[in-house]
Simulated scan of single mutants.
Amino acid sequence: MGPSEYASGEVTRDPVTGRLETYTIAPGDVSSVIGVRFCTDFVTILVENNAFASDFEPGKVLRLAPLRDYRAEG
C-alpha cells in the first residue's frame, strides 16, 4: 500500500485507529494504479467521493472510506 510510480500521493490516517482516511492526488498519478494501491478499483473510489473521472486532478483530496456491504443495506 505504499507509494508507487503512478500513485505517489499523500495519504492521511485516523490518528486513533490508523485507518486510511484520505488520498491527495499527485501529479502523474494514474487512476487505475491508485485503485491497485488501495486494493480496489478507482470507480469505487469515485463513487465513494461522488466524483467523476473528469474531477481527477493533482491536489484533489479523495476520501478513502471502508467499502460498504451493500447487501446489508435496505
Rank of each mutant, 00 (worst) to 15 (best):
M1C: 04
M1V: 07
G2W: 03
P3F: 01
P3I: 12
S4V: 10
S4R: 11
Y6E: 13
A7M: 00
A7F: 04
S8G: 15
S8K: 15
G9Q: 12
E10M: 12
V11H: 06
V11M: 11
T12Y: 07
R13T: 13
D14S: 07
D14E: 10
P15R: 10
P15W: 09
T17E: 09
T17D: 08
G18T: 13
R19C: 05
R19F: 04
R19T: 04
R19K: 14
L20Q: 08
T22W: 07
Y23T: 00
Y23R: 01
Y23D: 01
Y23S: 03
T24K: 11
T24G: 01
I25D: 00
I25Y: 00
P27I: 00
P27T: 04
G28A: 02
G28I: 05
D29P: 02
V30E: 13
S31W: 12
S32G: 09
S32W: 12
V33N: 03
V33S: 08
I34E: 02
G35V: 04
G35W: 00
V36Y: 12
V36H: 10
R37I: 05
R37K: 11
F38D: 00
C39H: 11
T40E: 04
T40Y: 01
D41T: 12
V43Y: 08
V43T: 12
V43W: 03
T44C: 05
I45N: 00
L46T: 03
L46C: 14
V47H: 06
V47N: 07
E48M: 14
N49G: 05
N49K: 10
N50I: 06
A51G: 00
A51L: 13
F52W: 09
A53N: 03
A53V: 13
A53Y: 10
S54L: 08
S54I: 11
S54M: 09
D55W: 04
F56S: 08
F56C: 05
E57V: 08
E57P: 00
E57S: 15
P58H: 06
P58Y: 04
G59E: 11
G59N: 09
K60N: 01
V61I: 15
L62Y: 14
R63H: 09
R63M: 11
A65F: 12
P66V: 08
R68K: 12
R68S: 08
R68Q: 13
R68T: 11
D69L: 09
D69K: 10
Y70D: 10
Y70N: 05
Y70I: 11
A72W: 01
G74T: 08
G74S: 12
